Amino acid sequence: MSQTLAESRPAAGSYRQTVLSLAAAQKAAAPGAPPYSIYINRRAGRYLAAACHRAGLTPNAVSAVSAAFTFTGIGMLAFGTPSWGLGIAVWLCLAVGYAFDAADGQVARLRGGGSLSGEWLDHVVDSAKLSSIHLAVLVAAYRGFDLSTPLWLLVPVAFCVVAAVSFFSMILNDHLKEIHTLRTGAVPVKGSGSRLKSLLLIPTDYGFLCLSFILLGAPVAFMALYTVVFAANLGHLVLASVKWFRDMGRLDATTRDAHSTPTRARHALVTGRPVQ
């Protein structure tokens, strides 16, 4: 994310005080969010954000660092020779990039808030990352995996589609809910989560996907795990899409009720009788 119009200087307090202030101002996690993103990546991002802020880096600069690590890892995945060493290097690049991705928004909060341009940059980088990582798997599998059948190559292709649709759906959900709030003044009720739901969502966690690349030293084992992760993401998208569609239907009903209320009030004022 980007900084606000007023550029702020790094805080005068200690690094530890900066970390504590970030923890206090941390946004609440989405209900039932995957554990790696919440308990590991968000905390790592907090420490990186404090260091970046004290070094004077802007949120956009942090986003650029995140992109540099991420796309370095994706390039290594696509064009490197499968090995345990490559797998560890790819995992580290992607994990560090993910941690910096969590840091840019926190740096923005330390500087007084984010901006639309920063939000745009963050989402565009994320969308490029989520699609290209699966295309990199496709290239890597084609170049260096000894697969029993070319049909395995369809898995990363399908995973690319699932990742793109999932990301777009989540962004669209937030956008439509904001429009609904502006039209009606009603704030949509957030769903509830549980520890069990959080654990079940581990295979859908981007951090878990990053970790799976350690298995590049054993391509057959990697493809087996990657396929399981794909199936979990596909199943989650199908189930979530049904829920999201119903959520939008409920918002439609709320919007119709809000628009019909003034008409009913005018009818009752003119006729002296309420509309049944």
Rank of each mutant, 00 (worst) to 15 (best):
R42D: 10
L92N: 11
A44I: 04
V62P: 03
D101G: 03
G105I: 10
P59R: 01
L172C: 10
A68Y: 01
L116M: 14
A51G: 07
P150S: 03
W120L: 14
R43P: 06
V162S: 01
A30W: 04
I38S: 13
L57N: 04
G97N: 01
I38C: 15
M76Y: 08
L48N: 07
A49L: 05
A44K: 01
F79V: 04
L57A: 10
A44Q: 09
G144Q: 07
L138I: 05
L110W: 03
K27H: 04
I38A: 15
F145Y: 09
G114M: 10
A61F: 00
A141P: 07
N41R: 00
G45D: 02
N41D: 14
P150W: 03
A95M: 12
S148G: 11
I133Y: 02
M76T: 08
A44T: 01
Q26F: 05
R46P: 11
A158R: 00
V90C: 03
L135F: 08
A128G: 15
P59Y: 00
M76F: 06
S37W: 00
F100Q: 06
G113T: 09
R111H: 11
W91K: 10
H134V: 02
G118I: 05
P150D: 04
V165A: 09
S166C: 10
I40L: 13
P31F: 05
L147R: 01
C52S: 12
A29R: 12
F71H: 11
S132Q: 07
D101F: 03
A67K: 00
V157R: 01
L48F: 04
I171P: 14
L151D: 09
S37N: 12
A50M: 03
V65E: 08
G32W: 01
A61D: 05
L135P: 12
A103S: 12
P156C: 04
F71Q: 08
V96F: 11
V155G: 08
F145D: 15
Y39E: 09
I171Y: 13
H123I: 07
